[in-house]
């Protein structure tokens, strides 16, 4: 589904992605973690080409992203992205947030799109908020709407960039619950997060990054209980203190 082959990227002289090799197959849930500035966001932002890679090859759903002639709209329509800061459209209602792309990208009829959106809002437990505006919702609810917005495009892959980092602690659970459900239903997911509980519960693999490199890859329990590298061990001891 996703295949990084010797991928490199620089921001100026900063080597943010250093020879990344990674494969994610359909239905797999991969958690990416690592210290701040290690390139986690950049890594997953490359998958829907919010960032361009500069060297190497990256295939997503069969499309070569290193090739500049691919149909980006088509690629992005198949990939949902959930941001740390939700980024809902504040001038639109919850329902309109969710139907915008189905109507204008998928060219669905409004009625159809609304039915679909209601179904997705139901899944994240917010069907009763359809007519509300984003500012009337709590952070956790906004993030669940953002997930519904992604789901409404029936994506093949869902990407999450620290989806719970901007939330108050009491709201993290509700968002993780939705994500766990998606994972168990077989969604292909790449999740940047430090939520160890989530990783242990549903992740097939944990990727540990530092300074633009993948330092370690392993099954969640094995990675958290028995990290191979010193850097990973140090990182885990730090997040455990929280």
């Amino acid at each position: 589904m996703i295949k990084f082959k010797n991928v490199n990227k620089w921001f100026g002289s900063l080597h943010v992605l250093n020879d990344i090799n990674l494969q994610v197959s359909a239905g797999e849930v991969v958690v990416v973690c690592g210290p701040s500035g290690s390139g986690k966001s950049t890594l997953i932002r490359c998958i829907n080409r919010l960032e361009r890679i500069q060297k190497g090859e990256l295939f997503v759903d069969g499309m070569p992203l290193h090739d500049s002639t691919i149909n980006l709209t088509k690629l992005r329509a198949e990939i949902g992205f959930v941001f740390q800061q939700f980024h809902l459209y504040p001038h639109l209602s919850v329902l309109e947030n969710v139907t915008l792309a189905p109507i204008h990208v998928r060219k669905m009829k409004k009625k159809e799109a609304e039915a679909l959106a209601m179904e997705k809002l139901e899944r994240v437990g917010l069907a009763d908020k359809a007519t509300a505006h984003p500012e009337q919702l709590s952070g956790g609810q906004q993030q669940r709407v953002a997930i519904a917005r992604g789901l409404a495009m029936s994506p093949k892959i869902l990407l999450f960039d620290e989806p719970t980092s901007a939330l108050d602690p009491e709201m993290i659970g509700e968002v993780l619950a939705v994500m766990v459900k998606l994972a168990q239903e077989g969604m292909t997911m790449c999740v940047v997060t430090h939520e160890m509980g989530f990783a242990r519960q549903v992740a097939h693999r944990v990727i540990f990054m530092d300074e633009g490199k993948i330092i370690e890859t392993g099954k969640p329990d094995q990675f958290f209980d028995n990290p191979q590298s010193d850097r990973a061990a140090m990182f885990i001891s730090k997040i455990l203190k929280h």
């Binding site: 992005r76 949902g80 941001f83 800061q85 980024h87 809902l88 792309a101 204008h104 990208v105």
Partner: peptide
Amino acid sequence: GGQIEAGISSGLSYFQRMRFIILPQ
């Protein structure tokens, strides 16, 4: 900018983003 990225991520074109996300706000 995050809203624009959200628009890009869901496959909206430049003009669609202008029309539905940026200009109304």
